[in-house]
């Protein structure tokens, strides 16, 4: 199970390694449920640990971000590996259409700005 942590007003999770489709889909619905329960203002998804993102994974990440957004939260995706960026762009089409940041550090800064709070409260 992919852990989802609440840090101040932000739901933080890190996708790592070889995830099965079921794990990813379970994560998607648990994330949305947690959003409702915790009233988080932002979602930060770190993908430093993913060395392959195929079109399925890209779609689920996009959908999760869009779902969180229409529920009224901000979403930032961070830590995409260089080779993953390369393959996603080469595969063509807009596979990723969310706010992104280079790493977790910059991602956290960005989500704080987006939710308009210095403390994340």
């Amino acid at each position: 199970m992919i852990p989802i942590l609440k840090l101040k007003g932000i739901l933080l999770s890190s996708l790592q390694g070889d995830l099965t489709d079921n794990e990813v889909l379970e994560y998607q619905s648990r994330m949305l449920n947690m959003l409702e329960k915790t009233e988080a203002k932002g979602v930060l998804i770190d993908i430093t640990g993913l060395d392959i993102v195929d079109s399925f994974m890209a779609r689920v990440i996009n959908e999760t971000a869009n779902m969180a957004r229409i529920m009224g939260t901000e979403v930032v995706l961070c830590g995409m590996q260089p080779m993953v960026a390369l393959t996603l762009v080469e595969m063509g089409r807009e596979l990723i259409g969310v706010q992104t940041a280079l790493n977790l550090d910059k991602g956290f800064d960005k989500i704080l700005i987006l939710i308009g709070s210095e403390k994340g409260e």
Binding site: S55, A58, R59, M91, G92, R93
Partner: peptide, 20 residues
Amino acid sequence: EDGFTTGNGLGAGLPGAKRL
């Protein structure tokens, strides 16, 4: 073709793979 799918994917699978 980009975007064509008989399943419920994005239809990026085959053309995406070809470009790689």
